[in-house]
């Protein structure tokens, strides 16, 4: 993952190096009548990241994604996608793929015809479309359903078809709004694999969900919003803030900061090797869920 982020925890609003940002939100607000859906959100999502967008129902996740997708105009603030202001819709739409939470598929036509229509609408040349569509169908594992009517697909398959549609313009930024909703555990794992694969190809991905555990496994960053406000943005994974508490039979407990399982195993081996009477080794949860609770609790204070 290409990422030069330091600890964002202290200053979640600090803009990072602008050049590397895939999406940059500056003071973004969206007001529906009197309902404030987004309130002064400022954050940079680095290029190449898989960013989880977390928040309770009505937090403003879909609103934020729709704005980045050029569907909604913010009431205040500016948004840039790979340096293009979102008012330049043609430029932004050329690099963004968006899969909304409602799938919005046409029925009464086959999977391949559906994708062909969208490829055509993105001005993909007729002779390039079959190859593109075959590749996408293989990626989302719908190769066997090429000629099936869109109507006859299961929910999970429709979700994957919508994903294929979102990828048809070969986007650099993929916005997925609750892609895991309605998927069984197996389909979720497959979705995670697809996301990892795309990220490996250099696609920046923003994925919203309230299933925190799902996001944790696939995201490099987490963006938490609540009541339209940015409650936190941080880099997951490489921070050494796993705190391990070791209790001894004959000594007061000690705490260690370590980075991963290997380090924890090494620590235990060292302590035992030193002849200390280790009773237990417990890890504080530092997962997304814990951080989510911490972040949102902090915001409420």
């Amino acid at each position: 993952m290409i990422d030069g982020h330091a600890d964002e925890q202290q200053a979640p609003r600090a803009p990072s190096d602008g050049a590397a940002a895939a999406v940059s939100f500056r003071g973004v607000s969206k007001v529906y009548g009197t309902n404030v859906a987004l309130n002064d959100v400022t954050v940079d999502l680095p290029a190449g990241c898989v960013c989880g967008l977390v928040g309770p129902n009505g937090a403003g996740k879909s609103t934020l994604l729709s704005i980045a997708a050029t569907l909604l105009r913010p009431t205040a603030g500016t948004v840039e996608v790979f340096g293009h202001p979102i008012a330049d819709t043609a430029a932004v739409r050329g690099v963004v793929g968006y899969v909304p939470d409602v799938l919005g598929l046409y029925t009464g036509l086959s999977v391949v015809d559906y994708l062909d229509f969208f490829a055509d609408s993105y001005a993909v040349k007729a002779d390039q479309r079959p190859g593109l569509i075959d590749g996408l169908l293989e990626l989302v594992d719908l190769g066997g359903k090429r000629d099936a009517d869109v109507n006859t697909l299961s929910r999970g398959m429709k979700q994957r078809l919508a994903l294929a549609r979102g990828l048809i313009n070969d986007p650099k930024l993929l916005l997925l709004d609750e892609p895991a909703s309605g998927l069984d555990p197996r389909a979720r794992i497959e979705l995670r694999d697809i996301i990892a694969h795309l990220n490996g190809l250099g696609v920046t991905i923003v994925v919203s969900s309230h299933i925190l555990a799902e996001l944790e496994e696939m995201c490099s960053h987490a963006l938490v919003i609540e009541h339209g406000r940015l409650a936190g943005f941080e880099h997951l994974g490489d921070e050494p803030d796993r705190v391990v508490t070791v209790t001894y039979l004959d000594a007061p407990a000690e705490q260690y900061r370590i980075s991963d399982d290997a380090a924890q195993a090494a620590l235990v081996a060292r302590l035992v090797g030193e002849g200390r009477n280790v009773v237990s080794v417990s890890t504080d949860t530092t997962g997304l869920e814990a951080r989510f609770m911490r972040l949102t609790a902090g915001e409420l204070n």
């Binding site: 963004v96 968006y98 046409y106 609408s121």
Partner: peptide
């Protein structure tokens, strides 16, 4: 009604 307009709006059409 079928929410198919959004994907169309995002294309180059």
């Amino acid at each position: 009604a079928n929410q198919t307009l959004q994907p169309l709006q995002l294309t180059l059409l």
